[in-house]
Design a protein around this nucleic acid. Sequence first.
DNA 1: ACTCCATCCATAGATAATCTATGCATAGAT
DNA 2: ATCTATGCATAGATTATCTATGGATGGAGT
Lengths: 109, 109
Amino acid sequence: MGRDEILPGTLHLLILRTLVQRGELHGYEIAKAIERSSEDVLQVEEGSLYPALQRMLVKGWVKAHWGTTTENRRARYYRLTPLGRKQLHIEQAQFERVVNAIARVIHTA
Amino acid sequence: MGRDEILPGTLHLLILRTLVQRGELHGYEIAKAIERSSEDVLQVEEGSLYPALQRMLVKGWVKAHWGTTTENRRARYYRLTPLGRKQLHIEQAQFERVVNAIARVIHTA
DNA sequence: ACTCCATCCATAGATAATCTATGCATAGAT
DNA sequence: ATCTATGCATAGATTATCTATGGATGGAGT
């Protein structure tokens, strides 16, 4: 954890959660949404984001289609699949579990 | 985060914290201490632990010496250096910061 | 017209940290 | 005699990230 960007292994969760909250978004929007809602603590690099979205497409957690933004730009929109929604629940529970476990270790007297 | 062992990037923190709590420990004890104080949620694989301890030695966060356990076994004991104590504060603050940021993203309405 | 910035996508290669699998050794219990 | 827990360590694979790069374009400002 030498960086101050994201905790390795949490990017899928962040993306899934952002999509379930805001519906259909394109990549750039997803990144900005995560950064903003984290109050700019988390930085989502494009070199991390797009490979992550590829992985999620392959796993069937999201589907994508090309469209046009309000600013008249070409963009690829992603939306959650039912499988993605299931995965969100799994990853969120897992995250809480592990973070709580770490907290117990850290705060052990 | 497909595993249920440790959050990547948190092992140094867990080790540093365990050493500051319990003083001088050998590797095997460190692993068991983390597993127990996490109520067996976190699993510390030896293949992760020993390389991590090597990294921490190189960085000067811990010092090691060979000794004998209460069970009469040869073991390598680690203790925190002042630099390690400083690093603990850094990593702990960093961890809280990032986890809180993730929590904000996850719990955004 | 030109320039600049923000928006948008994507990949290659390097880096880092983990896991799996393996090897070695021995104390104590059965 | 054998088994289990204790103890150290490394090689190689895997995974996920970052850095660096490349390309394209809309709109704002000059």
